Amino acid sequence: ELREAFRLYDKEGNGYISTDVMREILAELDETLSSEDLDAMIDEIDADGSGTVDFEEFMGVMT
């Protein structure tokens, strides 16, 4: 189920989504998050600083 959700956002099928897209997902899930909260969450999610979120990083957030 998580893989299907990931595929919805990984429109190009390249195995990752951008941190911008991940930020939008988080904002949709919790509309009360401030910009600073979102920045901090993205920094934590994208631990390797690649600017992308792969499936493993995505799973870590969603579980």
Rank of each mutant, 00 (worst) to 15 (best):
62 M>H: 04
29 L>D: 02
41 M>V: 06
1 E>K: 13
54 D>S: 15
44 E>A: 14
36 E>L: 09
29 L>C: 12
62 M>D: 03
25 I>D: 00
13 G>T: 03
10 D>E: 02
15 G>F: 04
47 A>Q: 13
39 D>G: 05
55 F>E: 06
33 L>M: 07
50 S>Q: 05
51 G>D: 03
39 D>C: 06
9 Y>S: 04
47 A>E: 08
49 G>S: 08
62 M>Q: 03
48 D>H: 09
44 E>W: 13
8 L>H: 14
14 N>A: 08
42 I>T: 02
49 G>K: 12
22 M>E: 00
4 E>C: 14
20 D>F: 07
41 M>C: 07
37 D>T: 10
22 M>L: 14
49 G>Y: 05
54 D>W: 10
27 A>F: 09
30 D>F: 14
4 E>L: 05
9 Y>C: 12
5 A>F: 15
27 A>Y: 10
41 M>T: 03
39 D>A: 07
14 N>V: 11
23 R>C: 02
13 G>P: 01
28 E>M: 14
24 E>V: 12
9 Y>T: 02
26 L>H: 00
40 A>Q: 09
38 L>P: 01
17 I>L: 06
29 L>E: 02
57 E>N: 13
38 L>V: 08
55 F>I: 05
11 K>V: 13
53 V>M: 04
33 L>D: 00
38 L>R: 02
57 E>R: 15
12 E>M: 10
54 D>H: 11
31 E>N: 14
44 E>P: 04
6 F>D: 06
58 F>S: 00
14 N>T: 11
63 T>E: 11
47 A>I: 12
25 I>K: 02
1 E>Q: 13
39 D>S: 07
32 T>C: 09
21 V>M: 11
23 R>D: 01
52 T>K: 12
25 I>P: 00
54 D>I: 07
37 D>P: 01
30 D>P: 03
49 G>A: 07
13 G>I: 03
59 M>I: 14
53 V>I: 13
34 S>G: 06
18 S>F: 03
36 E>V: 09
14 N>H: 09
41 M>R: 07
2 L>W: 15
24 E>C: 15
12 E>S: 07
63 T>L: 12
16 Y>N: 03
12 E>P: 03
